[in-house]
Design a binder for these strands. Structure first.
Lengths: 154, 154
DNA sequence: GTTACTGCAAACTTTTTGCACGACA
DNA sequence: TGTCGTGCAAAAAGTTTGCAGTAAC
């Protein structure tokens, strides 16, 4: 089931307005990238967005899609599904735990919480397939990055 | 605070035993990669594991570290922190929601749940920094991949 | 008319793969 | 001894950057 056209346009309007307000120019390319991602339900990667937009803007470059998605993410208008960018990172801690992830620098800290461990996945999630684990990700800005932000504002 | 040496050795023993049981050979390189990741608290990427192991096995190659970590992940002994590997994927759905992620094929499905939305992050998580969002990730094997597995077992 | 944005090309980073030699069981 | 694993090298995949022309405001 696709996102209804009215909802798509509502999202595009939000994205457009936010781009404007942040001082960025609302170019044809950015508008169409925004429309493509607003319409998507499949959590596309950059390449997939590029393919979609090219149907309407055949001359757009992959770089522009990268730059636009990065800008929208920076403004908090869209999100990366994986919390961190860059290389894959591993975790060998076999004890049940959760993560705090800094969206600025990628810092990851373990979080132990019996309350979170006890979390019951909703009934309906079984339609997706066989569940193997539940992980809660707290996303935010770590202390170090907070200090850096404060320093810059002075 | 480092992982206590006794806990490290316990984890290494678990990893070694599991490697053996799966029919893989327990080489010097694999043992040291296992030790390095068991000891780590920082959710290292492949490069960082490589640097650590090289102190003890100067001739090990980066490829071997890649292959060993991939094998340990495949066996479910360690986990990637980001649910999916491969290119970064985006989400433009502004409505609060959570994700089901297939650990085999990377499929991501949105999950709406007022119960999960209402989740209160534990008090102590505020020491990490400023919290901005909470996302619950259900990980497992999607219906399509389950079918593929069943087909192979016949 | 300015200034920011785009497309192109090249560079860089991260990850994967083919192959011959060496090591584990 | 046979087979699996390793290191090397090269390639592939994903992402970033500098620059000159172009378009938004």
């Amino acid at each position: 089931m696709p996102v209804p056209e009215s909802e798509v346009e509502r999202r595009v309007a939000l994205l457009s307005q936010a781009l404007r307000q942040s001082g960025m120019r609302l170019t044809h390319q950015r508008l169409e990238v925004a429309r493509e991602i607003a319409r998507s339900e499949t959590h596309p990667d950059v390449e997939a967005v590029y393919r979609g937009v090219r149907n309407r803007v055949p001359t757009i470059s992959l770089d522009t899609v990268y730059r636009t998605l990065a800008a929208l993410t920076e403004l908090g208008l869209i999100k990366r599904v994986s919390a961190t960018s860059g290389p894959v990172r591993y975790d060998a801690n076999p004890i049940q735990h959760h993560h705090f992830v800094c969206t600025r620098c990628g810092l990851i800290r373990d979080l132990y919480s019996p309350t979170l461990d006890a979390l019951e996945p909703p009934e309906e999630s079984s339609v997706f397939g066989r569940l193997e684990s539940v992980e809660v990700q707290l996303r935010g800005v770590c202390e170090a990055c907070k200090r850096k932000e404060d320093d810059c504002e002075r």
